[in-house]
Design a protein around this nucleic acid. Structure first.
Length: 182
DNA sequence: TACTGGATTCACT
DNA sequence: GTGAATCCAGTAA
């Protein structure tokens, strides 16, 4: 199994978000199948809507990790995309494959369904923090290739709600997968 | 320097 | 279904 090459992330977030489904995210001894993603660009719900120091990786890089802290207690991990543009894909949910014992320890739970079924849960289970922000995707923390999920098995939705005068962005998930967030 | 609010989660009702 | 926990970046003064 090979890591996705840097050039794989040149496209825009909306195109890459569904393609990331089914791929393997690996950090240290933990690995899982990506089952839910969310695409962010210059829409009003995105950090990139306004040019700030925090969101700089979204416009300066592609194929890097963009990790930010929210709600006083949670980390969320994105992969930056879009060479020459602005974009990132938030990894919202993952199906645990390897390092499950470690994930359970980090998450303080025995429930498999509760390990990575949300963006902050995924970060906690994989031990992702601000230290990983701006890191280049590399073998110790990267996304590995896997067969593409057929479009017929992918569901999309625009999250209900409006912020800054615009609809929230596209969410993609594998139909019927129990590990997607609610 | 001080204040505001958030790409969430979990416990509790 | 509702509200609390919690801290950092962004913004205003």
């Amino acid at each position: 199994m090979n890591p996705l090459p840097h050039s794989w992330f040149e496209g825009d977030a909306l195109t890459l978000a569904p393609k990331l489904l089914g791929k393997i995210v690996k950090k240290g001894s933990c690995a899982g199948i990506i089952v839910e993603t969310e695409a962010y660009g210059t829409d009003a719900a995105s950090h990139a809507y306004k040019v700030t120091k925090r969101s700089a990786p979204m416009r300066d890089t592609y194929g890097h990790w963009y990790v930010y802290f929210t709600y006083g207690m949670h980390w969320c991990a994105n992969v930056t995309t879009d060479k020459g543009g602005v974009g990132a894909v938030l990894i919202r949910a993952v199906e645990p494959v390897e390092g499950i014992a470690l994930m359970k320890k980090r998450r303080h739970t025995e429930k498999l369904l509760n390990l990575c079924s949300g963006p902050a849960k995924f970060c906690q289970a994989f031990g992702i923090t601000g230290k990983d922000n701006r890191k280049l995707l590399a073998s110790d923390f990267a996304i590995f290739d896997a067969p593409e999920i057929p479009r017929s098995k992918i569901a999309t939705s625009v999250r209900v709600g409006v912020r800054n005068g615009a609809d929230l962005p596209w969410r993609f998930y594998i139909k019927g997968n129990p590990f997607v967030s609610r």
